[in-house]
Nucleic acid binder design. Structure first.
Lengths: 240, 240
DNA sequence: GCAAGCGTTTTTGTATGACAATTAAAAATA
DNA sequence: TATTTTTAATTGTCATACAAAAACGCTTGC
């Protein structure tokens, strides 16, 4: 019996890649494991070998697999996984519990975003500053939760771009996921909205003044606040 | 059998993916550009459409492309590129000049690695500490430049793993490239070897003592030294 | 004249079948 | 037992055919 894959508008090999990818991230196929061969995938998902191969190429491109003739496709060690890939990260997110995912993203943000803010303050161009200011205005104008999330993501993306370092760009995905995650917690209305706006304003002020240290500090405060929001909406947390 | 100079071993679609990927990173196909269609690629590289499609799937999986029926494959905006993918980063590296690549990697390391050191000091397990200590010993014992690079990379990988945050793991690729790059500069013998060892020892000491602040400071000193090495081997640079 | 709807056509998406290349594992040999 | 050869399983590549999506141009109706 063909395994049912969630159907949607997207292509067969994309659905397959997601199906297999989620099972790898969930630990069903641990690193070092040899996957079923292409013919078996085709049979179990009722698709052609062509589609299977394209799905496997996608996963290989993301560092999850390595294929060799006569051997098959082997799950690679975790160090090689492109966890900062949008797809892989979303599979990862659905494979672990929300709390620890939120903790990981916040921890990572705390390491990276203050440095980004400092760089942005020092190196931003006038255009990049414009984009940041516009994002802040959109945050003020936001009337719904999705609008709010969108403007917030745009704000942090603009800041990231203003840092002018291509190697840091991939970390934007973490911020995106962290914010999406956050708005899972703060259900419909966010009473912190005004405070959040003010915290973002402080960052903009520092970037305008090209004051790296102030930008860093303002970002730390913003992340502190996010931590507080998460803690407040959580039944209980255990310390270690 | 030296008659054929064909890139032996590597598959056709891998070579194609690399070929197209390098041309995208080099700017020949800018973001927003529509690539030639699959049939044309097949003709110009003398391969089947199947191979072309698998190469394109690889690149799509790395965030470089998006394909849609009747439209074609369009180069995605840079924000979506998985620059922390090993392949993409190497294509990027060969597309820009060495100096600015070194500057970018050092800038990124300066943002992230101190935080990693601090996390590692606070959260490392006994086994993770062992791995770190072993890497340090291998640095001491290293007799050749490649051995030295290998042990150095292993040291920073061990530290990264000790930080116990999966989202930060992809950053290891930057460290790898940065160190490889560095040893391009310091040609054969590195007179800084003893100093470098001592700087690494300081990090280990802090991690042993679980002193996060000390670990952070020690890492900053190490990166400072790396900057100094780069500056010393460079004709001239301007400060701003 | 102009807008809306409808086929046309281009390009990717999927399937099938065939054969080549690779190499682990089994079999044969020294 | 150790080494070499053969075999077989699996991915890699190709050719062909048709399906599906969607931009484009055409017709039609007002």
């Amino acid at each position: 019996m063909p395994k049912s894959v969630k159907k949607s508008g997207i292509s067969v090999h994309d659905r397959l890649a997601r199906g297999i990818g989620e099972r790898i991230l969930a630990g069903e196929f641990a690193p070092g494991t040899l996957l079923p061969n292409e013919a078996e995938w085709g049979k179990s998902y009722a698709v052609s070998r062509t589609a299977v191969r394209e799905a496997i190429k996608t996963l290989t491109g993301k560092g999850l697999l390595l294929s060799r003739p006569k051997i098959g496709s082997r799950v690679q060690p975790r160090e090689g996984w492109n966890l900062l890939d949008r797809d892989v990260l979303s599979w990862h997110r659905s494979a672990i519990d929300r709390r620890s995912f939120a903790a990981s993203t916040q921890e990572a943000r705390r390491i990276i975003e203050p440095g980004i803010a400092e760089l942005a303050a020092k190196k931003r161009s006038a255009e990049q500053l414009d984009r940041l200011v516009t994002a802040l205005e959109n945050m003020r104008k936001a009337k719904s939760v999705p609008e709010n999330v969108g403007a917030d993501v745009e704000f942090h993306s603009a800041l990231l771009q203003a840092a002018n370092n291509a190697l840091l760009v991939p970390f934007g995905i973490i911020i995106e996921q962290a914010l999406a995650n956050l708005f899972d917690y703060t259900s419909q209305r966010n009473p912190h909205h005004n405070l959040a706006i003010r915290l973002h304003e402080n960052i903009v002020r520092a970037v305008v003044a090209q004051d790296g240290v102030a930008a860093r500090q303002a970002m730390v405060k913003l992340i502190d606040d996010t931590d507080a929001v998460i803690a407040a909406t959580t039944p209980q947390k255990k310390k270690n």
